[in-house]
Design a protein around this nucleic acid. Sequence first.
DNA 1: ATCTACCCATAGATAAACTATATATTCAAC
DNA 2: GTTGAATATATAGTTTATCTATGGGTAGAT
Lengths: 111, 111
Amino acid sequence: MPRKSDLLPGTLDMLILKTLNRAPLHGYGIALSIRRMSDDVLTVEEGSLYPALQRLLAQGWVKAEWKMTETNRRARYYTLTAAGRKQLGIELSQFEEMIAAITRVLRDQEA
Amino acid sequence: MPRKSDLLPGTLDMLILKTLNRAPLHGYGIALSIRRMSDDVLTVEEGSLYPALQRLLAQGWVKAEWKMTETNRRARYYTLTAAGRKQLGIELSQFEEMIAAITRVLRDQEA
DNA sequence: ATCTACCCATAGATAAACTATATATTCAAC
DNA sequence: GTTGAATATATAGTTTATCTATGGGTAGAT
């Protein structure tokens, strides 16, 4: 059996950027937010999340700083950079284009 | 730079099954059909297509037979099986659920 | 003859996501 | 006081899908 992903592959970075575009957040909070907003359909595993955040940092799309949470724990807060906002725009429009294209293929009419 | 896929990963099998649900077709024709129906947005590379067809065969979702094309060439025609039709239904509904979930995350309102 | 479009297929590289594991802290319950 | 659940970060190693690159071959037009 082919493995069933918890995500639609290729969309994780976009989802993280979008989440951070609302407000800076730490990793655990990002995962909770995506899970909650998707009504438990999308689950971001830790082994996917933290490597993704490292990628985004390396690209300069987010920056990070250690802070205390409201519940009094050390956590690394990520903030979208200007480049990150731009990247989010790019990824959103590419995603929409892809979905539109897939939808055309899935339609029942011939081209 | 992250590599840009010609496809949204995880959607290829569904696209192939859907294409074959319209009519039996050979590999090359499947690739052309997907390209054409997507208005050149989705390009299925041969190195993705033929392994995918092998996967679908191995799962019993398609069957294959060698025939001659209208242009008088040997080609392997793939046909959806009953199990393949069922699988297409599963993949379509999972895809729609995923897209709906992603759309909720991408919305600007808080949950 | 040569070129273009048609056709199949595999090997090897790459990247994204997974599982599994490790560490550590706060707070509540017992 | 110690146990456990929830909070929090991170990496190593595996799996899988897709890609690039390559190989083979045929039909028909120029």
